Computed example of a mutant assay.
Amino acid sequence: MANIYTPDQKHAKRQAIMQAAVELFAHQSYPEITMQQIAEVVGCSKGTTFRYFATKEDLFMSILLEDYRDYFERLLTGLTPTTRLTAADYVDWMTAQTKELIVHHSVLVRLNAIRGPILEGKANMAETVARRNALYAVSRQLGERLVTCTQQLLTRSQFSHLFIVQSAMISGLMNMASLASFNHATLAVSYPDFEIDLVPEAQQQTQFYLTQYLKEFSQK
């Protein structure tokens, strides 16, 4: 008799597969990771992983979009309708979130860098668009919340757009911060002029960009 899983059991298995992929991606490059490796971490067959995700690209695209959605939802929860932020408070908040993304969500930033050139090549378009729409909906809610919290410092669209700019800056700096390593291995060379202290430099760039942006586009 075929095994019958409840919806909760299926959800738990799907989450376990995604978590295993995240753990491997934290220490390996994307091309090195196989669905067999992921299955071994989960303790299931490779066929099981393919029942939940048709391709490796589908798996990692799901991680990227669903985890980013969850991240935005946590930000939305943290900003209540009664929260009040000045322009300086908003810049400080976004600067703090830059560190949060690098320190606690680096997998998302790395995946974002390979989304277009690698993941979209074999990911299911319909499923990707559906998850992207869900992410966009939460982003719009977060933008609306920031309009309220800042007393209309910027428009909802501007606030939502600035999260994309923030992610792009972090991804670029993270990519260039690894020139003294190759495929997760530290090289026996030094490039002091190329060194990037990722967290403080990303925060500095975020703060500078937002400060200048607000000077030019603030509605107040």
Results as ranks from 00 to 15, higher is better:
S190C: 08
E144K: 14
D92M: 07
Q28I: 01
I102P: 15
V107M: 06
R156F: 03
V129P: 05
A88E: 15
L24H: 06
F53E: 11
A87W: 01
T77Q: 15
T86C: 11
R132H: 04
D92C: 02
A21P: 08
L146G: 06
E23Y: 01
V165S: 14
M35P: 01
A185Y: 10
T150C: 11
G78L: 09
I33W: 12
R145F: 06
A130L: 14
A188L: 01
Q207T: 06
I4G: 04
S29F: 01
E201N: 05
K13R: 15
Q158G: 02
V189N: 14
Y213R: 05
L187A: 09
V22T: 11
S190T: 15
F72A: 12
P117N: 12
L64S: 07
A20M: 13
R115S: 10
L214P: 01
H11N: 10
C149L: 07
R156I: 03
A126G: 07
V107E: 11
M174V: 03
A185P: 03
L214C: 08
L173H: 10
L76V: 03
Y136H: 15
L85I: 02
H184K: 11
R140V: 15
L135E: 04
A123F: 13
N175I: 10
K46A: 03
A134F: 08
M1P: 06
S62V: 02
K220N: 10
Q203V: 06
N112I: 05
G143D: 01
D197N: 13
Q166G: 12
N175Q: 12
L214W: 05
A126F: 07
E32V: 05
Y30R: 00
P7F: 02
Y90H: 13
E100Y: 07
